[in-house]
Simulated scan of single mutants.
Amino acid sequence: MTGRSDRRRVTSQDVAREAKVSRATVSYVLNDSPQQKIPEDTRQRVREAAARLGYAPSAAARSLRRGRSDIVLGLLPDWPIEHALGRLVQQLTAAFAQHELTFLVHSAAHPARPLREVWKALTPAAVLALDAFPEAEAGAMRAAGIEVVMAVHGSVRSGHPAPLVPEEPIGAAQARHLVPAHRRLGYAYPDLARLGVLARPRLDGVRKVCAELGLPEPDVRTVPVYPDGCVEAVKTWLAADPPVTGICAFNDDVALAVLAALRSLGLRAPQDLAVIGVDDILGAALAQPPLTTIVRDTDTIARGLARRIVDTLAGVQVSADPLQDPLRVLVRVSA
């Protein structure tokens, strides 16, 4: 048992023979060439023959026709692939598919193949990274013919003014929701250092709102995502002078850990400590109490990123301004 199929790949010549037309006609029909006047019944016969034989045009041939690959390589940092990130990947896949591009994802989680080996093997038309990567790597990609190299939360060029998808407004939205009823805020920081590229700007957003309103600096505590690990953070917040009464959590997972710690201490949200998360994960509405959270429009983000890649591939000048990231507060019971 070799694991290989001995079946020969179906070619366009096979389709032509089955449909009793020329190979050129097969190409014109399956590529939907607008300049060729081919009768509709012939077109239908070719499509039916291709379907019967299971014919799929080769990626190599398609690339030669277009003059470039149809692959966009998505580079994921070593982040947990959970609900929010998984949803974004699905929406990016759909957004690129609308432009006849294939979105392939590579995670940097250890032990992954070196990045250079991956892009050399695939020769994508474009690379979309969620985090920054070295300019030297980006330069090597461009030299190899990769037309677009773009980073979402960082820059592949030093001095770039802002990330494409800013995180700071998320923390600001959390703080603005809490400050009418809470004059001392805390920030529940994740205990995974590799999430700092997201956590730091979100915390900066909370800090800026506090500074604008003359409130104390937020009390920042690293919160492990399990109940016992969070208990000490909750005790410290409540024992502060004046006590912290509202918590902006890095995301819903961290917020749920805070809620679990409150329950283990016999306390309640929002009466003893209000909590607001980010992402509206599946368990947020089922939490006790149901979790108030910030909801991102990841579909709008995905379509915006795909549009920038497509426009750049087409030679269209694109803005360097951040994408619009509509945010809304989904108010439940916890805050």
Rank of each mutant, 00 (worst) to 15 (best):
V234N: 13
A255M: 09
L259T: 03
A260F: 04
L259F: 09
D279H: 11
D280H: 09
A284T: 06
T236Y: 00
A260P: 01
K235A: 12
D228G: 10
T236Q: 14
T245F: 07
D253Y: 14
D253E: 13
T292K: 12
I301G: 07
R296N: 06
A240L: 00
L291W: 11
D279T: 10
I281W: 07
V295E: 13
A284V: 08
P270T: 06
T292G: 11
I276M: 10
G277A: 04
V278Q: 10
A274C: 10
D279L: 05
K235R: 15
V258D: 05
P243M: 06
Q271N: 07
P289A: 01
P242C: 09
D228Y: 07
R263K: 14
L265V: 04
D252T: 07
G283E: 10
D228A: 15
P270M: 05
T300N: 04
T292P: 12
A261P: 11
N251Y: 09
I301L: 15
P242N: 09
P224K: 07
D252A: 10
P242Y: 10
G229L: 03
L291G: 12
V231G: 01
F250I: 04
A233V: 03
T236L: 10
R268Q: 13
D299S: 11
L265M: 12
A284P: 09
V275K: 11
A287H: 03
P243A: 13
C230N: 00
P290G: 11
V223K: 11
V275E: 09
A260T: 07
P224F: 02
A302I: 10
A257D: 03
A239L: 03
L282C: 02
R268N: 08
V231E: 09
I294S: 03
P270Y: 07
L256V: 07
V223R: 12
A249E: 05
L291S: 12
D297L: 09
G277H: 07
R268F: 00
L273V: 10
L259E: 06
L262H: 10
V231W: 02
A249H: 11
R296Q: 15
N251E: 06
D252I: 05
D253F: 13
T236W: 01
V295M: 08
E232D: 15
R268E: 11
N251H: 13
A249V: 12
R268P: 00
P227F: 00
D241K: 15
I301C: 08
D299L: 08
A261R: 09
F250R: 04
A239F: 04
Q271W: 02
L286A: 15
L267F: 07
L282T: 14
P270C: 04
I281P: 07
A287C: 04
P289I: 02
I301A: 06
D279P: 08
I247G: 02
L273G: 10
T300M: 12
L291V: 12
R263I: 01
D299F: 00
T293G: 04
Q288R: 08
P242V: 05
C230W: 01
A233T: 03
P224C: 05
A255W: 05
V234P: 13
N251Q: 03
W237K: 00
S264G: 06
G283K: 00
I301T: 15
I276A: 08
A257W: 08
A287N: 03
V231F: 04
A239K: 09
V295F: 03
A274E: 04
V234W: 12
D228K: 14
S264P: 01
V244R: 13
G246T: 05
Y226G: 00
A240D: 09
P270E: 05
P242D: 05
D272A: 02
W237E: 00
D272E: 02
